[in-house]
Every structure is written in C-alpha cells, then in structure tokens.
Design a protein around this nucleic acid. Sequence first.
DNA 1: GGCAGCATAGTTAACGTTTTCTAGACCGAG
DNA 2: CTCGGTCTAGAAAACGTTAACTATGCTGCC
Lengths: 352, 352
Amino acid sequence: MAGVSLGSRPTVKDVAAAAGVSATTVSRVLAGNYPVSASTRKRVLRAVQDLDYVINAQARALVGGTTRTVAFIVRDLVGPLFAYIGQGVEQQATAEGRVCLVCTHHGDADRELELIELMREQQAEAVVLVGGGLRTPEHVERMAQIARSLERVGSRLVLCGRPPIGPDAPATVVEYDNEGGAFAVANYLLSLGHRRIAFVGAAEPEHTTTSARFDGFTRGHAAHGLTVDPALVAGGTFDRESGYRQTKALLARDTGMTAVVGITDIVASGVLAALHEAGLRVPEDVSVAGYDDIPLSADLNPALTTVHIPHEELGRSAVRLALHRDDYAQDQHLMLGTHVVIRKSTAPPREG
Amino acid sequence: MAGVSLGSRPTVKDVAAAAGVSATTVSRVLAGNYPVSASTRKRVLRAVQDLDYVINAQARALVGGTTRTVAFIVRDLVGPLFAYIGQGVEQQATAEGRVCLVCTHHGDADRELELIELMREQQAEAVVLVGGGLRTPEHVERMAQIARSLERVGSRLVLCGRPPIGPDAPATVVEYDNEGGAFAVANYLLSLGHRRIAFVGAAEPEHTTTSARFDGFTRGHAAHGLTVDPALVAGGTFDRESGYRQTKALLARDTGMTAVVGITDIVASGVLAALHEAGLRVPEDVSVAGYDDIPLSADLNPALTTVHIPHEELGRSAVRLALHRDDYAQDQHLMLGTHVVIRKSTAPPREG
DNA sequence: GGCAGCATAGTTAACGTTTTCTAGACCGAG
DNA sequence: CTCGGTCTAGAAAACGTTAACTATGCTGCC
C-alpha cells in the first residue's frame, strides 16, 4: 500500500516506469501469454501492487474486441420467476468469466427496444431477453431485425422463455415446455376425476405465455375427449388480485367447478384467498393448481400443486448456448421440460 | 435498413465516409454540442440510419473518462429483500442515465473482494454493496482500504443496509434503522401485555444485522424495565428451516413464551409452521412477528406483523447519493426509518 | 569463430471515440 | 474594399491497452 498516488488512476505506463520496463512487458506479465524472465515479472508484480494498479477494462475491450459482458433484459427484478432466471444467467455468466449487465423495462416495449440498443452500444456479447412477449407479426419482425442488428456487431440475441422468431433470424432460443406443462396439469386433474375445471388468467391471447398455457389446458381436455366450457374460462392479469377477483366472479356465476387452474402461482394464491373467503376448503371442496413453482407455492395454505419450470437452468443455458454458439451451432434452440409438482391443493372431486 | 454491411461494426469513419464529412462532424452531430448546418446534420443522420450505426461505449468511455455504469454487488438475486433493493438501485441508475452491473457472491467474502476488484477494472462510477456484513476490526479495515482504493480510480463505495466503516473512509452509507425497528416491535408486543417473548435467529453476534436487531429487542425490554431471558433467545441462520427447528426446540423446553420475534420474515414463516404443527393457534395462543416486510409476509397464514424496511428507497438513495456526492457532500450517511406493520399474527396474550 | 536460433525486451501502430486547435467562408461595418 | 467576427468543418492528438514487428544478447553447433 506504499507509494500510491491519490487523484488519478495508474496506467500501464506508470507501472512500467516504476518497474523500469516497457508497457508491453507489463501487459505481458499480466496476461501471462509471453515469456518474461522471473526477475522482471517479480519487479512488475511488485510495482502493480505498490501502485494498486488495475487494468482498464474499457481500453482492453477496445483493442481486444470483446467486452466479456452479458446483458440481461427483464421486466422486473422482483418476482421470483425472473429472479431465478436472472440467478441462472448471472451464475453462468460468472462461470464463463463474464460480467452481467441488468436492465428492466417494466413491461414497456419501447423501453425494451431502447435497452437493446443500449446493449448494442455496450458491445454485450449476448443480450438475453426474458419472459413471454407478443407474437404479433409486427413484433416478430421487429425482433428479427434486432437479432440481425445485434449479429452485425458481433453480439447475439437470446430469447429465454419465449418462442422462436423464425428460422432465418440469428437468435438463440431457450424455451420451456409451457404448453406441455399445462397439458400435464389438465391431464392430472382430469385423471383425478374432475370434469369442471376453471382456468383463471386467460386474457391476452396474443401473449405467448398465456396462449401456450391455455392451449395445453385445452389439449389436455381433448385427450380425454372433452372440450373446455367457455363459462369456466376467466381472464385477468398475472397478479394475485386478479386471481382473487376472477375467482369471486366464477363463484358468483355458480359454474359447478370442482377445480381451478391459475395461470401462475401468484394468480393461484389469489384463487386460494377467494375460495377460503367463500368458506370452501381446498382440496376437499375445490382443487387448485398453479404454474411456475415459485418458492412461495410450497408455503401457501395448502401447499400448491403446480408446474415446475427449470428457472435457473433456463438462464444458464441461455448464456452457455449464446457464448458457445460456434460449438453448439446445430442446436441454438433448446426446449427444457416442465413437470407437475403434486402438493396438497389437489385431490379427487367429492362424490355427487 | 439499406446498405448495411454484414460482418463488421460500422464506425464513425464509415458514417463519415458515407455522409461525405469528417469523423469529427459525425461525433458532433451525435453529441449535439457543436453547431452543425442543418443539411450536414441531415446527411449524417441518414448515414447513421443506413449503416445501423451505434456508438462504441468502450471507446467513448476511454476518451470521456466516464463509463456511466453503476455496480451492484449482492449475496443473491433471489430473496425478496435483495431483489427489492436491487430494483431500487436499477431504477435510480436508469433514471440517472447509468447502466447497471450486477454480481452475486453467495456469501463468499473473498469472492466479494474479487468482484469489487472487477468493478474497479470496469470503472464503475459507484459500487453498491448490499446487506449486512461482519463488524470485526479486520473486516472494517479491509472495507476502508477498498473504499480508498475505489476513490483513487474515481469510483465510490456505497454501503447499503450496512453500518459505516469509520469517518475517514471515503464511502457513502445508506442504512435503515435496524435497531429502531426491533425496538419498536418489542415495544409493541410488550405493550400488548406479552412478558415472555422469544427471539429466534440471534446467532452470529458479529453480523451487523443480527446484532442491531437483537440490541433493539433488548432495549425494548429495558424501556419496560425488563431484561431478556436468555432461555428465550434462540440462534440459527436466516432461513425458514432454521426458524422451524429453533421454534420446535423452544416449545420442547416449555419456556412459557407467549410471543416470538423472528429475525426475518422468512425465519418467522418457519416459526409459524412449527407452531401450527404443535397445534398452537396464532395469534390466540402465541403471537408472531417478523422483520423485513417482504411481500410474502402479507400472504402468510395469518398475515404477519413485521417491520417494514424501505427496500427500494434504500437502493435508490444509494445510487443518488453516490452519483451526486459533490452536491450532497455534507450527508453521505443516510439513515432511513423503519416501522412496525401490524397484521394478524399478533394479539394480546391470553389471560393466565 | 561465425552463424542459426531462441529467449527476452522494446517500438510502433492500431482500436473508436472526443477534444483541442486550426482554417476557410461568409457577413456586416467602417 | 478590407477587416474583425461568426459559422462551420477538418486535422491531429489523446485516452489505455495489446499485438505485430523489430532488436538485442545468448547458447550451441559445425
């Protein structure tokens, strides 16, 4: 800690001067990619320590061409689903020696575009977009443009938990089997004997997550030779309050439902609240299932049957595939499995 | 979108050539800090669009001296407390036109140091450290060194939810009143008439968060002329499982407790589970309170009385103060208030 | 002893910006 | 008609690093 000069950051030149060598030699000692005599190395390392020198990542990136940076663009940091995917992204990025840039857009699509542009300026090696999006033709085309735009600067668009945007667009896609999970949960409830199963949170058919889950739900019925009664389908948003309100409405309509599937665990927690309030027992009177398997779901009362998503694995794969896209050129589209986690909130329907 | 050349990123030179001007002029058009004729501006902007040009943030940082980057170092991304503080940090960083680097150390102190070093390389304008730390003399001294080290490269250490490290160390500190919140919750329970209040999660007295909360708890008793019975103090870690186990142990010891304070809401959720399992009703038989006011706490059964921490405000203030440390030079140490949120898990003790 | 070849170190030119500093053109005033 | 001033534009240097050359001693071999 001796000899540190306050005020301005030391550079290789300062270190070189202190060690009595050239800047090149300092660079070589630090990089370790060129033979340097033991005595010189020692002097340089000593000078580095004395001056408390750290390399300037910007300058290095400028000449080296790579920033060792991965960007992670997400709706919100809070919310267990995003947090766990983010955890996976950050973990893998760290494991690969990369640093992680995080930005949130709070659902604003324009802001999302701005952020992608910002990440392009930042030269991020990969730009991971998390969460479902719209699947309108305009949106898909815009995404394809972004993908090409990023490719042009040597970056890579990664869609995480969002379906692909066409075969020609240069993007890495890591999905989970949204539709399959919904199919499985419908199948499970139908196998228990339920025939009047409500689906809460089906608004926004343009939204990829919503539609995939509802499609799986429908297909589950079809597999049992049944169709979904539109009277049992409720809309709403992805929050708890919505689940609560929609369920109250369903109860008021006296639909004869014996089970409810919430489009997310959070929605399902609202469903539970409404059922409890109506004096109905879960699962004795009504079964309830959710989707996402967030940590909270095991703590609900009763513990929630739900569909497990491999959150962290999703994030990790996203980064891994994107950074090694040369090695994994063949499969830049991954579909991770989902499965039903059976807890205490589901049971066979009562007789009669 | 016409005329884009694939393969390599366009530079100012390319744009300049396309527009028939010099690189300087392009820079000036983009920065808007120098008079440029309308026709020239138009041609330049046209070229920018045609080539799909974006500036190179690294090169700009190299010459400009500032990276417009804020670093956020945290134990984990998951866990509502950290997520909400992170939300605040990211929000304020965005509002100030900064980009946010996020790293996690999973409780590894050496890793934390590595990350700080990495952020120094990255030239982050501020490095925000979140969560409680140790308060051993060595740790404090090491933090002070880091603070000076960061200052030397023009960066700023920010301690968020962690007490200061001495008056001479150049650091920004944003705390919340940990001790005061614990005092308030103890006071509240004592005022309800409780006299046998257990404290779960008091291990690691070196940890700043733990000790501050326990101190407040003790002072609350003192204010009522009481002392804390050591038999009512249980150790353990910050997770749900620990709360569950410690509570079972307390119950087994037959301590006559009528209320339990969990050191965090997560711990309190374990406390609730253990009490329910023992057939005790909350709050009729035993009152329970937590700390942190994470979103989950309102959904527990019963809804948890807890101490609210201004999570997002904590993160926002951290960034704001650090970036404007010249303007806010006088108060680089902020203490945000906490308060008890009374829900359904607390009530007066039963008679007798 | 002279020379190929290796080990070590230095010089110089990039990388893509911004920021001086310099310079031409045009204008109105004297 | 010329001269100071205002607009506008370009040339060159700088930011901190690395990589491609270049240069110096050595060692060992014929």
